[in-house]
Simulated assay, not measured.
Amino acid sequence: MTAYVPGIAETDLKKIILALQQLAAGRSNAVGSVTLATGTSTTVVADRNCSAGSTPILTATTAAAAAELGNGTIYV
């Protein structure tokens, strides 16, 4: 879910409150995508929205990826 992000110089209190309400409701802009390389055992994701405390949610976009998820052979 995408959240409204006010600019650093935002002075409209309603926009700032909207952003806070959306974050409290679980919305954020911490989204992205990564393609796992075939034949490798690890993939490092470097993104400012991704850190050691992040919880990635993997979604298969191909039949092969769906099989890997179904087999339980992907670990985070």
Rank of each mutant, 00 (worst) to 15 (best):
M1V: 13
T2W: 14
T2G: 12
V5S: 09
P6H: 01
P6A: 02
G7C: 06
G7N: 14
G7S: 13
I8N: 15
I8T: 14
I8C: 13
A9C: 13
A9R: 12
D12W: 13
L13Q: 15
L13F: 12
K14V: 15
K14R: 15
K15W: 13
K15Y: 13
I16V: 13
I16L: 09
I16N: 04
I17T: 15
L18P: 07
L18H: 12
A19G: 10
A19V: 05
L20Q: 14
Q21F: 13
Q21N: 15
Q22Y: 04
L23P: 03
L23A: 09
A25N: 08
G26R: 00
G26Q: 01
R27Q: 14
R27A: 07
R27D: 07
S28T: 08
N29Q: 05
N29L: 04
A30W: 05
G32K: 01
G32P: 01
S33A: 06
T35V: 08
A37E: 13
A37Y: 08
A37V: 15
T38R: 15
G39C: 02
G39R: 03
T40P: 06
S41H: 11
S41F: 11
T42S: 02
T43S: 06
V44W: 04
V45F: 00
A46W: 06
A46Y: 10
D47W: 01
D47R: 00
R48F: 15
R48Q: 15
N49S: 11
C50Y: 09
C50E: 07
S51T: 11
S54W: 00
T55N: 14
L58V: 03
L58G: 00
T59C: 07
T59G: 08
T59K: 09
A60E: 04
T61C: 02
T61M: 05
T62S: 03
A63T: 12
A64P: 04
A64K: 07
A64F: 05
A65I: 03
A65W: 02
A65C: 07
A66M: 06
A67L: 14
G70Y: 04
N71L: 14
N71P: 10
G72H: 04
G72E: 07
T73A: 10
V76K: 10
